[in-house]
Design a protein around this nucleic acid. Structure first.
Lengths: 131, 131
DNA sequence: GACTAAACTTACGAGAAGTAAGCAACCAGA
DNA sequence: TCTGGTTGCTTACTTCTCGTAAGTTTAGTC
């Protein structure tokens, strides 16, 4: 990240009152500061995604209702939405088990399991600094 | 949160069709899965917060406009909002330098610097798994 | 006296999240 | 057979957050 961009000239942004800094900066052909990290934050930064991944790291495979219980503040609607996203990104795998009331199991893929260090570090930080 | 409504019976979710699982679970007196981690995700999971902390980790003190340049997609409005939040949480410190036009410098506190491992792990993951 | 710079604010529409309820498939018990 | 229960989602609607654009403030400078 922070690619090149060592500005000798303080340079652009604005011309009067307040012009479009964003556009000026983007228009200068400068790439976004770190597309991959940004994308990662978009993914796991989305509300509840971190919590979902966190509980899936602790137990290996969980059913829909189990995740819902483990994260009580999360509603079914959002849980369903987040799981679909995570599946689409390849972070979790979804397995439907044959049976009467349909049972669905979710588990992390390798990509998802590899998020563990980040999640653990964040947990460590939270434990240390938050009340 | 979860005021009154203390049902002695576990009475887990539903009675017909689909009742309020969320409220039932919360009402059962069960604490949220991990309040601190949840709080952390609320904080750094908010849009752009991760990116802001990330650039502040790389350089030590930055002015408002420098952060804005380093994260070109981020608008002034949100940058201002996020910085206020981060300051309130104690993640960054704000120093106003005397002189006109007003110059403000932001730098991470120890609490903020301690976020570096989590941010680095997330960056590593992003580099490895995202396109 | 108009112009400029830096750091914010304000206004407003669009999109994401929260809340509540419904649905489909199946089965156990009365 | 009818009632009720379980499970994994949807749908409908409200509220909050984000993105975009433009305005404000303070004081030096041309």
């Amino acid at each position: 990240m922070a690619p090149a961009e060592d500005g000798p000239q303080p340079a652009p942004r604005s011309s009067s009152g307040r012009a479009k800094r964003t556009l000026v900066a983007a228009g200068a052909g400068r790439p976004p500061c770190c597309p991959k990290y940004h994308k990662a934050v978009e993914l796991i930064g989305r509300r509840w995604t971190g919590a979902i991944v966190s509980v899936l790291i602790k137990r290996q495979a969980m059913r829909f209702g189990e995740i819902a219980e483990a994260v009580p503040e999360l509603s079914d609607r959002l849980l369903s939405e987040r799981m679909k996203e995570l599946e689409r990104y390849g972070v979790v795998a979804r397995n439907v088990r044959p049976g009467r009331p349909t049972r669905v199991e979710y588990e992390l893929t390798q990509m998802g399991r590899d998020l563990a260090p980040a999640v653990h570090e964040l947990e460590r930080w939270a434990r240390r600094w938050l009340t």
